[in-house]
Simulated assay, not measured.
Amino acid sequence: MNSVFRIALAGAMTAASLSGVALAQTATKPMVDTTTTTNSTAMDDNVSVVMMSSLEGENNSAKFAEIEALSKSETALAETRSMIEGDANLAAALTAKNVQLENVVHIETAANGGKVVYVK
């Protein structure tokens, strides 16, 4: 019985030492942040598209009125177009979400740095 215990213990120690070597090998590899190398993963997750029609109603009437007023302002629309043209990642994320760029009426920057895009 004692020899069975020793064999089991030796096997467990061998397995533990092999997994420790594997961990040491993986820990020495450099970490690569794939969200910054793809240029779309992070930005796509930080772009929210809001249809203006979804803001109509009692709960969102103030926000709808604000965005509707901005959509009629040539200055606000020019700022929005400039923001899209100046940020290739934003334009790519909107295109990936099937947003026609000419229908974007306003863009807000969220607290986390993401963008909230309002579309007519």
Rank of each mutant, 00 (worst) to 15 (best):
F5C: 02
S53V: 07
A93R: 00
D33P: 07
Y118I: 05
D45K: 10
S3K: 09
S17F: 14
S82H: 11
A16T: 07
A93D: 02
T41W: 14
T41I: 14
L55M: 01
K29W: 11
T75L: 12
V4S: 08
S82M: 11
E79W: 04
R81M: 09
L70H: 06
A92K: 12
M43T: 06
V49Q: 15
V99E: 00
L77H: 15
A96Y: 06
M1H: 13
L23N: 02
A10F: 15
M43I: 03
A93L: 04
A12V: 03
A42W: 13
T38K: 15
V32D: 04
K29S: 09
E68L: 11
Q100A: 11
A22L: 04
K120T: 00
T109A: 12
A76Q: 15
T75S: 11
E108P: 06
V21F: 06
S61L: 05
G11A: 08
M1F: 10
N60L: 03
A24P: 00
N89Y: 09
E74N: 04
T36S: 10
I67V: 12
T75M: 12
E56D: 12
T28H: 08
G11R: 01
A15K: 01
S53G: 07
K29P: 00
K29M: 13
S3E: 11
E56K: 13
V117D: 13
S61V: 05
T38N: 15
N98Q: 12
V119I: 13
L77G: 09
R6W: 12
G11S: 06
E66W: 03
A92L: 06
E56W: 09
G114M: 09
A69D: 05
A65V: 08
A15D: 00
T80L: 14
M83W: 06
S54T: 12
E66M: 04
I107N: 03
N46C: 10
E85Q: 14
V49G: 11
L101V: 05
M13Q: 08
G114P: 06
T109E: 14
A12K: 00
A42Y: 12
